[in-house]
Write a protein that binds this DNA or RNA. Structure first.
Lengths: 210, 210
DNA sequence: GTGTGAAGCAAGTAGGTACTTGCATACACA
DNA sequence: TGTGTATGCAAGTACCTACTTGCTTCACAC
């Protein structure tokens, strides 16, 4: 075998391997042997580096996704349809990527409370971002004022999560992947009483309240 | 000690215990010993009755919820707000009840394909029921005709699932339990361009298209 | 009675799991 | 040249896991 390309530090290798294995098999199924094999590292190294399996998995969840920039909505809405579609599409993709990891974490929250923070980290951000954005739309007269903002945000967030998490289980109920985001946004705009979608298919009826 | 109340057949006891333990710990965490203890039955009995742990868990999922009657929406819509609120409230409750079981099943679908049917059983029913109902509303002039019915159904279903599954993790983003159903329905009615909610708070603005 | 079938109990098998220990190697830097 | 520091390897510990076997007990049916 000679000496393989093992110049890099093993800590990163182990973390990445652990993330993959945990995403596939959950906490109990992610055995230290599996993780070590996946990382191409001796099992002992894993314990020397992280102390215990629990500590390793905690490190995985703590570090996960701290590299990618935060996606947000503009402070001054110009084209809600475009802005929201970008936002929704981006989050759909992100949540889809972390689906297995997220599902296992959520199902294990009762047993392993340390997973709680990870399970709801992104959630709050999305909800709050949407909520604030709707309020700005209202202020600009781009959304109806009698809308229950919180409920609207819950519904859009739920739709993103649901699509990202359940599409592969029940694919036929969801719109095609490439148009899903804009379809959700179009429905959402209607829900918050916004003028009909700008660019594409400017729906003829229900012109816009007020 | 003496002889406890163990007149009934142990099959049911084991099934119920297995459902509880599986809901708490998932497949790998639901050890035969735990299940047997929970059922107050000897571990050997479990194997004699079901053959293997996998067979037992499959039996649990196959039999689960086959007792309760199907909840549906009326063929001829009269009061969409009331009808939908009842429907949504009922399903919220049902999904909440089976949340742990459902979460584990969904997170394990990749590893144990036999769990797939269970993971999406209720889902399709809810989606189809809502879809058909919206179409009837449209036919009766109670919903706008240019609405994307599928997308609307996806969003309502997603909201139900999300509330039932994530409320205990992120409680503060959801509306209070007792009013959640009607709030979702009110937003949904707006989304499908239905006349504003009947009974309570007949929202003044955006009267109803057409 | 005498089966018969459902259940318990004790013990064992074969393997997996987290984690430890002791020792050998290799490179890095002083 | 020496001295860490990081890693590998082999082996071992203590426990858990699904599943089996052999034997006993008890209730009920004929």
């Amino acid at each position: 075998m000679s000496v393989p390309d093992r110049i890099p530090v093993s800590r990163e290798r182990i973390l990445e391997a652990a993330a993959r294995v945990y995403a596939m098999h959950g906490f109990r199924g992610a055995t230290t042997r599996l993780i070590a094999n996946e990382a191409g590292v001796n099992e002992v190294t894993l314990f020397r580096t992280f102390g215990s399996k629990s500590a390793l998995i905690e490190a995985v969840l703590a570090q996960y996704g701290h590299s990618r920039p935060v996606v947000s909505l503009p402070d001054e809405p110009v084209d809600p349809f475009v802005e929201l579609t970008t936002f929704v599409a981006e989050h759909l993709e992100r949540v889809r990527e972390m689906r297995p990891l997220l599902m296992h974490t959520m199902s294990e929250v009762d047993e392993r409370p340390e997973a709680h923070e990870f399970a709801c980290r992104g959630r709050h951000h999305v909800h709050d971002t949407i909520t604030a954005y709707i309020r700005r739309l209202q202020a600009s007269g781009l959304a109806a004022r009698d809308v229950n903002v919180e409920v609207a945000a819950v519904m859009l967030t739920a739709t993103i999560m649901s699509d990202a998490v359940s599409r592969h289980i029940v694919p036929d109920v969801y719109p095609p992947v490439d148009t899903a985001a804009e379809q959700y946004v179009r429905a959402f705009l209607r829900l918050i009483g916004a003028p009909a979608a700008s660019s594409v298919a400017p729906a003829p009826s229900t012109p816009a309240p007020r």
